[in-house]
Nucleic acid binder design. Structure first.
Length: 128
DNA sequence: TTTCTCACA
DNA sequence: TGTGAGGA
């Protein structure tokens, strides 16, 4: 699943293509970059190159704008998103707490119990 | 031709 | 946010 992520983050689209894909003006696209809502890369000629992820981000921004959210508000949304990401990363570094261990063990038991005839038929019916 | 930066009769 | 200038 990493190959796909790499492709989506490959900056290969010039601003003209992005304009058509997002229906945004070049002015707007550049302005959003100034507001650090998107961070396109630059090629050897100082031209902005966008990735598919950037396209998604721009479309998302457009949606927020339609919902009446201003630049400041959108910035806050992404700040929140980054803050939560940082939290997840930090959580991955920590050793498991007792509560985590208990939760994992419980899930293990549930999984084993899930092999009973009753749940097998349930799974079967659910999938078809 | 397309995109860049800068600035505002 | 639009638009035009002047350059690459």
């Amino acid at each position: 699943m990493k190959e796909k992520e790499l492709r989506r983050s490959q900056a290969v689209l010039p601003i003209g293509t992005v304009m058509k894909l997002t229906k945004l003006s070049a002015r707007q696209i550049r302005y959003y970059e100034e507001q650090e809502l998107v961070k396109p890369q630059r090629n050897e000629g100082n031209r902005r190159m966008y990735s598919l992820n950037d396209i998604d981000r721009l479309l998302e921004i457009k949606d927020y704008l339609d919902e009446g959210i201003n630049m400041a508000g959108i910035k806050h949304i992404y700040e929140e998103k980054e803050r939560k990401q940082a939290e997840k990363q930090a959580q991955l570094q920590k050793p498991l707490t007792d509560a985590d261990v208990r939760r994992i063990l419980r899930d293990e038991f549930m999984s084993i119990g899930g092999l009973s005839k009753q749940s097998l038929s349930f799974k079967h019916n659910r999938n078809f």
